[in-house]
């Protein structure tokens, strides 16, 4: 448990250090995620150790957005002024993103799999 947490924090720390060092636009934890993925592929034994602790954090992922979400109390003014515009942008972008993403997947799957998806 402590080993897994330490590894996760080390990946995050390495990610934060590298993005700042090189001025990359990626958030440090995202780079940390990529590093952990590569480490897990390279060392399956390590993966077995990380999974329980990592899944413990992910099981309650939605709890982690609550403190940031409560910050909405400071933005009620902005929401009142731009609420309608934001709502339109959210709904249309989500619907179009879903449709285009799924259609692109199906089109390329048909090309590379010859029209018969496996399983």
């Amino acid at each position: 448990m402590i080993h897994a947490l330490t590894l996760i924090l080390l990946c995050q720390l390495a990610g934060e250090t590298m993005t700042r060092l090189f001025g990359w636009p990626v958030p440090g934890p995202v780079l940390g995620m990529a590093m952990l993925f590569v480490l897990m592929l390279a060392r399956p034994r390590l993966a077995g150790q990380v999974v329980p602790a990592g899944e413990g954090i992910l099981r309650h992922l939605s709890l982690l957005f609550v403190p940031a979400g409560v910050g909405i109390v400071g933005h009620l003014g902005a929401l009142g002024t731009y609420g309608a515009g934001l709502a339109v942008a959210l709904v249309l972008s989500t619907v179009l993103g879903l449709a285009v993403g799924a259609l692109a997947f199906v089109a390329v799957a048909r090309l590379v799999e010859g029209g018969k998806p496996d399983a």
Binding site: P29, M33, A34, L41, G54, I57
Partner: peptide, 13 residues
């Protein structure tokens, strides 16, 4: 939130 982002490597794996 930071460690949770790193842990998203797990479903991918």
């Amino acid at each position: 939130l930071g460690p949770a982002t790193v842990a998203l490597a797990i479903p991918l794996w």
